[in-house]
Design a protein around this nucleic acid. Structure first.
Lengths: 112, 112
DNA sequence: CCGTATCCCCTTTGATACTG
DNA sequence: CAGTATCAAAGGGGATACGG
């Protein structure tokens, strides 16, 4: 009996690898770093930019908006002048920690 | 005392997020799927292509060569005619399973 | 301080045709 | 069957300038 065909869809037009869908939330040059820096709490836009180092204003803006759309990041505008906006992780964003941790573990044990 | 500045590098030009380095091994449109399908054992080139669905010959070839260079995939050429080549995961490639598993778990609990 | 609009480059991917 | 070469298309990201 061919157990192989029981555990995985055979020649599926779109063989859903669940890991891949998770990856979509982490793909992009800056997303993991953004999560990393927001893991401890909220940060203002410019503060976050300083932590990230060589990221452009435009790119950070775009990245944050995408992550907000993905439900990973929350934006809080204090409506002050000069502007003051804070970004933080949503529950969903924080829930990615085990994934990032698995990745850290792997980089420790298989890289360096 | 500001403990925050003790746990994370402040304004590092390249604040190393270890997870990011792992991501480099998994980034790319097809890499996770290739690992997924090779996790059970070796597959021939065309067989792998069929499983992956809509991937082009050229792209699969390139992807496999990259992953071979990264030490994730092993290529075995049987030197027969017609050609017969099998691809499989290296130990390093298989070691990524916990990472993929964490991703699967997340997609199950936070997507759908 | 926070954000957007334009322009440009570079990389990745796909389509297609060809080789051993 | 396995792989390469060439060309074209698409998207991500950076530089810069401008607006609220």
């Amino acid at each position: 009996m061919d157990t192989e065909t029981l555990t995985k869809p055979v020649a599926a037009g779109r063989s859903d690898c669940p890991a891949e869908r998770t990856l979509e939330f982490l793909s992009g040059k800056w997303r993991p770093m953004v999560i990393y820096w927001l893991m401890d709490g909220a940060l203002r836009f410019n503060e976050l930019q300083r932590r990230l180092g060589p990221i452009t204003h435009r790119t950070l803006s775009k990245t944050l908006k995408e992550m907000e759309g993905a439900g990973l990041v929350m934006r809080k505008d204090y409506g002050e002048i000069p502007p003051r906006v804070e970004y933080s992780l949503t529950e969903k964003g924080r829930s990615l920690q085990p994934v990032l941790q698995a990745m850290e573990e792997w980089s420790r044990t298989h890289l360096d």
